[in-house]
């Protein structure tokens, strides 16, 4: 039977992990069926919205849903944090985009997730586990209060190492500490997958580079269309230029120019700050006009 594409994208579940991090489960049966670990979607929260890329944190064929984990940092994501309640819907959700992660013949894999990166690292850990690999999860947060999805990692990983910057849970230190511990305990690691802020992925790449362990990172540069059309997401890989949206988002960590990535991630910062500022202003005015619980 022909698949009907939804024209609205209803939010069927929401979970707030912290006061800035939240999870949305969105009904989209066709995408739930098509999605593979490592792919991403582009979301618009309203008709006037911008297109933001978000890596899939989960997808469930039985429930007919996809799951996104979002950090409210800019105007759009903070607006989503306010507006996206169960029963509301998003204006546009397109995907799955990008080349799925290669779930190859690796027998022992480390999946490193840092901060928000814990979410997209989860489907990769699960895919490797289902493929029969021994999976070591290394998940890192700033502190215990910001932790989420440790249970999910434990449900698919053979071993999980939690790291917190302040030592309030697990190993004290960054995920690179956890990664070093894992490598020390397991000399036969075939592959490392690292997802998180660029600086974290860069640090992980430097841990594995001298050891020659294949390391894959998932890049999330600024995008517009997500279909290869604008070139805004171009990244330096070795000597060449690749578009993260259609040539990635997974790349060989040892060939990624992370400094270039980080410099380009900041290219709209002044506009982003202006938008956030204006939005916050509007909200304060709104606050004054209506009871607080409405905003």
């Amino acid at each position: 039977m022909p698949l009907e594409q939804p024209t609205v994208f209803p939010i069927v579940a929401r979970d707030d992990f912290t006061d800035v991090t939240f999870m949305l489960e969105i009904r989209h049966p066709a995408m739930a069926r098509a999605a593979r670990a490592g792919q991403f979607v582009i979301v618009m929260d309203s008709e006037h919205g911008e297109r933001i890329p978000l890596t899939l944190a989960d997808f469930d064929v039985d429930r007919g849903t996809i799951t996104l984990v979002i950090q409210a940092v800019g105007k759009t994501t903070r607006e989503m944090q306010q507006k996206c309640v169960v029963g509301s819907h998003l204006f546009a959700v397109t995907g799955p985009m990008g080349i799925p992660s290669r779930i190859g013949d690796a027998k022992k894999v480390v999946c490193v997730g840092g901060g928000l990166g814990v979410a997209p690292a989860f489907p990769q850990a699960r895919a490797h586990a289902r493929n029969g690999a021994f999976v070591i999860g290394v998940i890192g947060y700033r502190n215990r209060q910001l932790m989420f999805w440790e249970d999910r990692f434990r449900s698919v990983c053979d071993e999980v190492r939690v790291c917190t910057d302040d030592g309030s849970a697990g190993i004290r230190g960054m995920v690179t500490e956890g990664l070093r511990h894992a490598i020390a305990a397991h000399p036969d690691i075939d592959e490392v997958i690292a997802i998180g802020p660029p600086i974290m992925m860069k640090a992980c790449a430097e841990v594995t580079r001298p050891l020659g362990i294949r390391t894959v990172v998932s890049l999330n540069p600024v995008m517009v269309d997500g279909t290869g059309m604008c070139g805004g997401c171009r990244v330096k890989i070795g000597d060449g230029i690749k578009f993260a949206c259609v040539d990635g988002p997974d790349f060989d960590a040892h060939r990624v120019d992370f400094d270039d990535l980080m410099a380009r991630l900041g290219r709209f910062r002044p506009s982003e700050q202006a938008a956030l500022h204006k939005w916050a202003e509007t909200c304060r005015m709104h606050d004054a006009a209506v009871p607080e619980d409405r905003c």
Binding site: H48, G49, E50, R51, K75, T76, V224, R267, F268, P270, S271, E272, A274, A275, K278, W279
Partner: peptide, 8 residues
């Protein structure tokens, strides 16, 4: 900023 997409 009436529309959210920036352009430097």
């Amino acid at each position: 900023p009436q529309f959210d997409t920036p352009l430097q």
